[in-house]
Nucleic acid binder design. Sequence first.
DNA 1: TTAATCACG
DNA 2: ACGTACGTGATTAAG
Length: 901
Amino acid sequence: MSEQIELSKQPRLLLIDGNSVAFRAFFALHQQLDRFTNHDGLHTNAIYAFKTMLDVVIKAVHPDKALVAFDAGKTTFRTEKFGDYKGGRSKTPPELSEQMPYLRDLLSAYGIKSYELSNWEADDIIGTLAHEGEEAGYQVIIVTGDRDLTQLATDQTTVAITQKGVSEIEYYTPAHVQEKYGLSPEQIIDMKGLTGDTSDNYPGVTKVGEKTAIKLLTQFDSVEGVYDHLDELKPSKMKDHLIEDHQQAVLSKDLATIRTDAPLAVHLADLDYRGPDLDKLVPFYQSMDFNNFLKQLRNTSLELDFDQAGMNQNQLVPVKWTVLTAQNVDLVTQFTKEISFILEMPDENYHLSAFSGFVMTDGQQTLVSREVDLLQTKPVKQLLASDQVKKNVFNAKAQYVGLHRLGTPLDGVDFDLLLVSYLLDTNDNSNDLGSLAQQHGYDAVESDEVVYGKGAKRSIPDDDQLFFDHLARKALAIQELHDRLFTQLDEHEQADLYRDIELPLTFVLARMELAGITVDTTQLTDMREKFKEQLGTLEQTIYNEAGETFNINSTKQLGTILFEKMKLPVIKKTKTGYSTSVDVLEQLASQAPIVENILSYRGLAKLQSTYIEGLLKVVHSRDHKIHTRYLQTLTQTGRLSSVDPNLQNIPIQTQQGREIRKAFVPSHPDWEIFSSDYSQVELRVLAHITGDHNLQEAFVEDEDIHAATARRIFGLSAEDEVTPLMRRQAKATNFGIVYGISDYGLSQNLGISRPQAKQFIDTYFREYPGVKNYTEEIVAKAKTDGYVETITHRRRYLPDINSKNFNRRSFAARTAMNTPIQGSAADIIKIAMIKMEAALEQAGLKATMLLQIHDELVFEAPKSEIETLTQLVPKVMDSAVKLDIPLKVESAHGASWYEAK
DNA sequence: TTAATCACG
DNA sequence: ACGTACGTGATTAAG
């Protein structure tokens, strides 16, 4: 035996006897069984020790391929041969059994395949794969706690036996077996034939133990040799027993023999080891409460080992593709059922991006090309426009817009990998196909960053092989993940959310983006001149008041002026220095006139740079429109977000800022901007979800909800007047509830003391007991399930909900309260948008939906249609879903977005 | 690239 | 005792 393994230059195959090692692992930490439980009460000692063993072995072996074999069940071909095989063996302890499924999760996170085969034991799986590995020129390392497996040791195969402590391992080569037993590996089975095996419960020859067996085998080589030369033995009790138990010896040898011909469904090609998947491993450790392992992960050293272990990472399996040209374009007519399709656009902004090529595959044949003109040919157009041929894509909205720009309509989209992944888990919403596929366990594709490079170096490769391989792999990844992800959607009860809401919405959004909103740039340029002048004046005044010139936009320089030179009191600090935010400056305004001017300057500078200049930069010169992009797979709650530019944060609060909205105008003369928004939608959703009677009543009676809350928390009677201050405080409390209330947060917001804020909250909960109940139940649900849901089963995981870190845990708890509310409100308007587009079409209106701002929809329409819209739009919006309380919608219209509010 | 600030719901 | 309100995006300065 040896405590080290000698590695050859061959590639290495690691085979682990899962049950045997798990058993050893369990008993290695049996004493501390009670200490090893996670927050769900699951025992984790075997998982912990198994993981430790894995690290030791991986570090020692650096395998290229790996597999863990498990026993499939009680009956195997051996029990057929010998009914009592493994009979009388004591049952696996339940504390171990419960850990077995999680062990497989661990292995999956480690990137190691698990395998079992009914009717066969793990030993035989290992024997068969070891044989296969040797033939293919691998050095094979077998890990087990069972010494019988030393029979598999050869020049190429080393058997590693775990010791009591698990992290200690003995490596057996044929020489080491010889040294330990005085037998060759092949003779191990002969020994078992003669001695039998008490733990597996088969007999052998009476009174023959290890010593006698070794002596006999040294002399006669094998069981058969012993019986061939039986007459050479002097008469003895032992000889009698040998004669008597001949049959048993032959049977026992057979039982002990590990097979190398099991009919496996896995082969070497399936066993590539590339190191652990941190995106799986981290949540796994979190779920097991393996905090020290988490720390280890962050600390590096392990990752280095893993990287070395995964050296072969970039050797992807070759893929086949055919280049599509004008000559062979008819090849696409073979696709009649289903294709995965990608129109490759190198820039994020698909409204402007160049086109670098495309790919389509049905899993059998893959067609690629750089000539996007081909997408405008009849056969391709027909294919893409057909609702009969299902399309699997990554980001359907981008594909729809891109193809639209080429004059090619897209229909029949069934599977959007990006969208489905987002619904399954909003946390891993990478925008990169390769990364996303890898997160879902599909490794045969690289991320764009790896192939195209990043930053300034990013470019589409000139090399056809490189580029088309990547395109083909991406398309195949989509094809491959289709079934698995749809299954998961079903498991999450999210198929309806996908099919009835998110997928149809993607095309509604695409059409809104393409429609764009017209901007009157002269309005903006006029404002720019006016603001420029005002900013210049303010700048001079500030310099005079400061006694020097400095960069007013620099918080650092401003801090020095205010708090060091002018010695104003420091109210708040940031990580890096003095805070100069609005609430700080407002408190200082009375002490120095410069502060007021800085506030004015700030406000003006923000409008100028972000809105005036920012918007002017993104108005298209041809159509005078802005085409934003809505990100449908970004937010954790289900809301949309808007980029390039963000049209969801155009100013409205201050008069000066609101003027910007005058630049957003209809695209035709005699048209108007029409806008409708949900009134108090989040509080209505809160009333619905919590089922709180008092809150619901307020909405059913259509009361001013903040005033009604004020009456309750200040204990007013119906005749008492609600003062503006009371209403303001009640409003803040309502918001606080929606955000996942804390007394500290409310006290900050209202500028009151913490006990006072606590008083508000306590009273609120007393008046609205249903709400109190909800906050408690939703946090409890998050703790047990690990996630919360909206009314449409949109899901958000909250891994921090059981964190030991107070901050993280509290944040997760507030999120648990807020997400179903904010998310359900997002669901509602999404449903309304889908119905709205259909309703406008149905009514034969020219009106077009242009923008969504969370609770508001903005349209443009001929003046003649305004009256119709005033009826239709609120009707569609308030009937989008049926809640326990009514939804309320308010509308306005006018010459610009400014007037439509 | 990160932090600070400020625009919106 | 812990130290925060929920969800976003764009701009600017500065390491």
